[in-house]
Amino acid sequence: MKKVLVTGAAGFIGFHLSKKLVQEGFEVIGIDNINDYYDPNLKLARLKELNINTSVIEDNEENYGDITFVKLDLKDLDELKSLFELHKFDYVVNLAAQAGVRYSLINPHSYVDNNITGFLNLLECCRAFPIEHLVFASSSSVYGLSEEIPFHEDNSTDHPLAMYAASKKANEMMAHSYAHLYDIPSTGLRFFTVYGPWGRPDMALYLFTDAMFKDEEFYIFNNGEMSRDFTYIDDIVESIKRLIPKPPKRGNPEFDIKHPKPSKSTAPYQIFNIGNNSPVALMDFVDILEKVLGKEGKKVFKPMQPGDVTSTYANVESLFEYIDFKPSTKLEDGVKAFVDFYMNYKKNKN
């Protein structure tokens, strides 16, 4: 039985991945600091779904359910090293991060502390206690000013628009340097607008659904002239599951040192987009949600927010070639699944 460390295990993607890996026969150790960037009760509810007794969670203590859970912060290097020394992980999937583009305009230091220092600590542990594969979350936001649509992994990512994107770009570069210096096989994943049951309350689908359920106003930025490559959570998790046992190898013959491409290297390193390869206009997205809920939302149109982009669109050819899978869930099906979760969660919460 292969042992996997999932960081951010109480988060949206981390929770779903942990659940999937357990079903596939992996031994999962999950860590999370359960911070209050958004409602910690949602994070605890996810852990309860993994049969973790959340009433006894204390720092650095192991809790047993479907996974082994430890409340631990990546910034705590000593405790992180102790965890690596104890468990001797085969694989590491890093999904822990300070999320949110708009929040980075308010609290930029949080992105350096969590996304850069925290990731450096994780890399140091992977160096000290060698693993078979490090899979880490990047973001479609790294494409920044680029309008070379659809986004390909070899597009320029030199013009990020917010500290969140800059920190994710930094993660890619840090992972490459450690792959080159210390032979840590590393795969970075640029996620495109992930949504679905147990999703984050700061993201559009949750915000819009919550406002419509409460008959409140909600904001539509850039006057609705935006599009997103919405990617359903099950497709994200299936992609990660297939990638985990397929680490990159040193000396990729496709890498031309005289004409280097960002997604590959002579080091054991690679980058993939994970998106639905099917962008949807924001107002069409709202229309789908209104149909599922059976009511019209109270929309308030606002100008573009600093740090945001007008559209995202993932080229996923490289991903499909590598794992014989690409996301394909229809938005209508994914939105309905989220709304069903939301209604049930609110009912049980109240």
Rank of each mutant, 00 (worst) to 15 (best):
A162C: 15
A162N: 15
A162W: 02
M163I: 15
M163Y: 11
Y164K: 10
Y164W: 11
A165S: 14
A165K: 07
A165G: 14
A165I: 11
A165M: 12
A166H: 04
S167H: 10
S167L: 10
K168L: 06
K169N: 14
A170C: 13
N171V: 08
N171W: 01
E172A: 06
M173R: 11
M173K: 10
M174P: 05
A175I: 04
S177I: 12
Y178C: 03
Y178S: 00
A179V: 03
A179S: 10
A179Q: 02
H180R: 13
H180E: 14
H180G: 05
H180C: 05
L181D: 14
L181S: 13
L181W: 04
L181N: 14
Y182W: 12
Y182T: 02
D183Y: 06
D183T: 09
I184W: 00
I184N: 02
I184P: 00
I184S: 00
P185W: 03
P185M: 05
P185A: 06
S186P: 04
S186W: 01
S186I: 00
T187V: 09
T187R: 08
G188Q: 04
G188V: 00
L189H: 01
L189D: 00
L189C: 08
R190V: 07
R190E: 07
R190A: 05
R190W: 07
R190L: 11
F191W: 11
F191R: 04
F192R: 12
F192I: 12
V194F: 05
V194N: 06
V194D: 02
V194L: 07
V194W: 02
Y195K: 04
Y195F: 15
Y195W: 09
G196T: 10
P197K: 11
P197V: 11
W198E: 10
W198T: 13
G199I: 13
G199E: 15
G199H: 10
G199D: 15
G199R: 10
